[in-house]
C-alpha cells in the first residue's frame, strides 16, 4: 500500500547521488524538485505521481509448496484492490483497449506472471507500472550475430527515441533471449530487482554497467533538460533463445521505480 507513496531506499539513494553529481543547472533543478516531491509524498497521503500505474505481480511458487495458486491469486487481488482504494490511487485501468475504454474503477485487473522455483513457500514482487514511460518501452529482434554491441545499440536506439518523455532519470529493465513476448516479461521483471544488485553473471553485470554509461552519455538528462543523469540503473535478465534470433526487450521506467516484495510462508494462506 505504501509503494505508491514511498520510494524504495535503493531508488532514493540513486536519485540523491545523481543530484550530487549532476552538472547541468536545469538537470539539477529537475532533481531538486524530484527530491522535494519524494519528501512531500512520504509525509502526506499523496501518491508520488498521479499515474499510479497498472499492477504487475510476479509470483514465484516453490515446487514443494502446498500453497494453492488460487489462494495467492485471491490474496494479490485483494491486496491490490485495498491499496487502490485506501492509498488514493488514480484509477487508470480501462476495460477494453480499443473500443469501450471504460474505466474499471478499481485499477484491476492485476497483470500476473507465474513461475515455479525450487523449495517451499512463495514470493510476490509487485511493480506499479506508469504509462508515460511504458509508452516508450519497446522490443527489437536483432540478428544472432549482433552480440553485445547489437544489444547496446538496440537499447540506445530505444532510449534515444524516448528522449525526455519517460520522466528521466530512468530505470531500464532489459530482457534478452527466449521469444519476443518472454523477453518483454523479463524486462519487466528486471525492474523489480533491487537496483543495487547487479546480475549474478559477471558478463551480464558488465553489460549493465556499459548500458548505464552509454545511456548517460546521450545527454538527455533529468526531465529531458540535458545533463549527465539520464539513467539511474540498468538491469538485465536473460534466457536461452533460438539459433536464429536475439530478442532484446527494453522496459523503461521513470525515476519512481515503485515496487514491493512479499514472502509467503507455508500455511500462511
Amino acid at each position: 500500500m505504501d509503494a505508491v507513496r514511498i520510494l524504495p531506499d535503493d531508488c532514493r539513494t540513486l536519485i540523491a547521488a545523481a543530484f550530487e553529481r549532476e552538472t547541468s543547472p536545469a538537470g539539477r533543478k529537475a532533481l531538486e524538485y524530484i527530491l522535494k516531491n519524494i519528501s512531500i509524498a512520504e509525509n502526506s497521503m499523496l501518491p508520488l505521481c498521479q499515474d499510479c500505474g497498472l499492477f504487475y505481480a510476479f509470483v514465484e511458487l516453490g515446487r514443494d509448496s502446498s500453497i494453492r495458486p488460487a489462494a495467492i491469486e485471491r490474496a494479490v487481488n485483494e491486496a491490490a484492490l485495498n491499496a487502490a482504494q485506501k492509498a488514493f490511487y488514480r484509477k487508470s485501468c480501462v476495460n477494453d483497449p480499443v473500443y469501450d475504454r471504460i474505466n474499471t474503477g478499481t485499477d484491476l485487473p492485476v497483470i500476473f506472471d507465474w513461475q515455479l522455483r525450487d523449495g517451499k513457500g512463495a514470493s510476490v514482487s509487485f511493480l506499479l507500472k506508469g504509462f508515460g514511460s511504458e509508452n516508450c518501452s519497446s522490443v527489437r529482434m536483432i540478428r544472432p550475430t549482433d552480440g553485445e554491441d547489437g544489444v547496446v545499440a538496440a537499447v540506445l536506439d530505444i532510449v534515444r527515441a524516448a528522449g525526455g518523455k519517460p520522466c528521466p532519470p530512468m530505470f531500464l529493465g532489459i530482457g534478452i533471449g527466449a521469444t519476443m513476448d518472454k523477453a518483454s516479461v523479463l524486462s519487466k521483471k528486471a525492474l523489480v530487482r533491487p537496483a543495487d544488485r547487479p546480475n549474478s553473471d559477471q558478463r551480464y553485470a558488465a553489460l549493465e554497467k556499459r548500458i548505464l554509461d552509454e545511456v548517460n552519455s546521450l545527454g538527455i538528462g533529468p526531465g529531458g533538460l540535458g545533463g549527465i543523469n539520464t539513467c539511474l540503473a540498468a538491469a538485465v535478465e536473460y534466457l536461452p533463445t533460438h539459433i536464429a534470433g536475439l530478442p532484446v526487450a527494453v522496459s523503461i521506467n521513470c525515476w519512481a521505480d515503485r515496487k514491493a516484495f512479499i514472502e509467503i510462508e507455508e500455511g500462511q494462506l
Partner: peptide, 13 residues
C-alpha cells in the same frame, strides 16, 4: 512550458 515529470505530490501542494 514543461512541468517537472513525476512530481505529482509537489504539484498538489
Amino acid at each position: 512550458l514543461q512541468a517537472y515529470g513525476g512530481c505529482g505530490a509537489l504539484y498538489a501542494s
